[in-house]
């Protein structure tokens, strides 16, 4: 077995720390964007409305009530992003900084993850530290790729926030120096099973953020219908609850297929390593629970009375199960999957 390059391993850890810091900066930029650009947009809208009103007053002498109606109409219908989620013309400097720093941070993180793989002469996903760092890289990459086509910058503070949490969890919660794999993990199924699990989890992370936003947006829509005050003004950057639900559903459908594959590949590997393809080990139980919850989510979308808010809750519960499966089950439950690397 080729020996571990421990110096490179230390550089890798340094890269990952740097990436965590850079992502924190990006996270702050995205939060700044949510706070300021909603404010700016509102200011611009108000000014435009005033200008329109000012221009209209002389022209609409005959119909004096019209501007007042327009004004009251604006109060009850809150602004929201376009359904297409295409990039608009307005300049959002904070968001631009957020995206630019995220790209830089992702590159640093990629350097960290790849150098760890090179240092260990294997795929860099063999313990909790590595699941977290590789998982964070996949989440960031998926998000950045999605940004190329759609203006999903409203998700930035949520997604990059989760990336920061994952990297902090890796660096503080599960620090593990680079090492060889124990014999139980020395299998090509590690590459297949774990990589697909990480990708599926990354997609579930995105849909979790969308489902949370969907709940906030539908609450906001309800308040708009009731003619109440807009308490979540930054949500004007996000599209309607229905759009969020549809996009989350499409991503969840892909993630569910990948999760099904994870479950199957895990079963095949379990058969190779332990002599049975299914044994209700704690990790298997929770993988199954997650699968059933998301299956429930897909069915909910086709059940009258279960779309919308309820489906969003199922998606959130599913993601909480993913988190539970990854953290609590790995660390505190004994089972055959106890290779968190934590002593």
């Amino acid at each position: 077995m080729p020996s571990i390059d421990e110096t490179l391993g230390q550089y890798s850890e340094l890269f990952i720390l740097l990436a965590a810091m850079a992502f924190t900066v990006a996270f702050i930029a995205f939060c700044w964007d949510l706070a300021t650009s909603s404010k700016t947009i509102r200011a611009v809208e108000n000014r435009l409305a005033e200008e329109r009103a000012a221009q209209k007053v002389p022209a609409a002498v005959g119909a004096g009530g019209a501007p007042a109606e327009a004004g009251s109409g604006q109060e009850v219908s809150f602004e929201m992003a376009d359904e297409s989620m295409d990039y608009g013309s307005e300049r959002r400097n904070a968001a631009r900084i957020g995206v630019a720093v995220s790209i830089l941070a992702t590159l640093i993180l990629a350097a960290g993850v790849v150098s760890r793989g090179i240092a260990a002469h294997r795929v860099p996903w063999g313990n909790m530290y590595e699941f977290c760092t590789t998982g964070a890289l996949v989440v960031a990459l998926v998000y950045l790729v999605a940004l190329v086509k759609k203006d999903l910058r409203f998700l930035g503070s949520f997604v990059i926030g989760l990336v920061v949490i994952m990297l902090c969890a890796a660096a503080i919660g599960f620090p593990t120096p680079v090492a060889h794999l124990v014999p139980a993990l020395q299998s090509y199924w590690l590459i297949i099973h774990v990589s697909v699990a990480v990708i599926a989890s990354a997609l579930f992370t995105l849909t979790f953020a969308m489902s949370v936003l969907q709940l906030m947006q539908s609450g906001r829509e309800a308040r708009a219908r009731a003619g109440q005050k807009d308490r979540l003004a930054f949500m004007r950057l996000a599209p309607s609850a229905l759009t969020l639900e549809n996009v989350a559903y499409r991503i969840n459908a892909v993630a569910f297929v990948l999760w099904t594959f994870t479950l199957m590949a895990g079963a095949i590997w379990a058969e190779k390593a332990w002599g049975r393809y299914w044994g209700w080990d704690t990790k298997e139980v929770w993988t199954f629970v997650i699968w059933v919850v998301y299956a429930g989510y897909l069915h909910a979308r086709a059940t009258r009375g279960w779309t919308g808010t309820r489906a969003a809750w199922l998606s959130i519960v599913g993601y909480l199960c993913v988190i539970f499966n990854f953290t609590i089950v790995n660390v505190f439950f004994s089972g055959l999957h106890s290779y968190s690397g934590i002593q």
Partner: peptide, 18 residues
């Protein structure tokens, strides 16, 4: 609706085993 209910029940029922 029943299928959905049973699915969610199955998820909950599997938990005590862990």
């Amino acid at each position: 609706r029943t299928a959905l209910f049973l699915l969610l029940l199955l998820a909950v029922a599997a938990v005590p085993g862990s």
